[in-house]
């Protein structure tokens, strides 16, 4: 969840772990490269290799529930994909096995496995980013690397507003329940029951936004002489950026080349 304190505050530590000396942009480029590698070839062995690399990275950094939640949802989808493509994929020819008279085809299963592997590669590598970078670290780094502080503010304030909104929602829901609820059977009834919660919530949220906006202006957020907080140092970030970007360009180029030549 986003309310996770470690995500929000980014606990200050004296001795930094190996994944904390890698800067966020390098991690994002790494996600991009892994995704491109996974799309570069339909070879299943390569996919398994990439999944292994990502899993090892996760195991050696830290594991938490966020990755498992993301995995849970996609695993369900991958299973339905295996069933649908295994049964109905348009290039299906060879029957692999039959269950209760229903035949599963080899081509469809391979196709679905490949898509599933790609999804897993993306989720696991992004999982590495999610568990190893804190929101405040991202904010400081993004500003350091030249993004305007206004954009950084917009991006980062979401993470602080959400827990507050969830609290407001629970309060409003309780208040509406005390007043009594209507039956909620049909879709229309259910949608109507959403309104008494959503309208006060939206108005409250926008009201708080107005207050925030006015206080930002009063504190001189637009002041050109703003001082920037100095951020921590990272190892080899420049070299890593260049090589990872180079790899990404190479992979895209190779993919286009093989597409043009019909390989």
């Amino acid at each position: 969840m986003m309310t996770d304190q470690t995500l929000i505050s980014g606990t200050p530590q004296v001795k930094r772990k190996w994944y904390q000396v890698i800067d966020p942009i390098t991690k994002l480029l790494f996600i991009l490269d892994m995704t491109l590698l996974s799309f570069a070839s339909p070879n299943l062995l390569l996919q398994v290799g990439l999944i292994l690399v990502a899993t090892l990275l996760l195991l050696f950094s830290k594991l938490n529930s966020t990755t498992f939640k993301a995995l849970g949802f996609s695993l369900f989808l991958i299973v339905t994909m295996l069933i649908i493509q295994g049964l109905f994929y348009s290039h299906n020819q060879t029957v692999l096995f039959s269950v209760l008279g229903i035949s599963f085809y080899k081509e469809g299963l391979i196709y679905a496995t490949m898509l599933g592997c790609r999804v897993l590669v993306i989720i696991l590598t992004s999982g590495f980013f999610m568990v190893t970078t804190s929101i405040s670290e991202n904010a400081a780094y993004l500003e350091q690397s030249g993004l305007s502080y206004k954009t950084v503010y917009v991006l980062m304030s979401v993470c602080y507003i959400l827990p507050e909104m969830m609290r407001n929602m629970r309060k409003i829901q309780q208040a509406q329940k005390v007043r009594g609820t209507n039956p909620q059977k049909t879709l229309i009834q259910k949608l109507k029951s959403v309104l008494p919660v959503l309208i006060p919530l939206v108005i409250k949220t926008l009201d708080q936004s107005m207050a925030r906006s006015i206080s930002l202006q009063l504190r001189g957020f637009d002041n050109p002489n703003r001082t920037v907080k100095t951020s921590q140092q990272y190892h080899l970030s420049r070299m890593l950026h260049i090589s990872l970007t180079g790899l990404a360009i190479l992979l895209i180029g190779w993919k286009i080349w093989t597409k043009i030549n019909g390989l």
């Binding site: 206004k150 503010y153 917009v154 304030s157 979401v158 507003i161 959400l162 909104m165 969830m166 929602m169 959403v194 919660v197 959503l198 919530l201 939206v202 949220t205 926008l206 708080q208 936004s209 107005m210 925030r212 906006s213 006015i214 930002l216 202006q217 957020f221 637009d222």
Partner: peptide
């Protein structure tokens, strides 16, 4: 400043409505 605070609020509304 108004849009800067409206955008995060909108993202929050998306998130809460989805949860609801």
């Amino acid at each position: 400043a108004a849009t800067m605070t409206l955008i995060p609020a909108a993202v929050g509304i998306n998130y809460v409505a989805k949860a609801l």
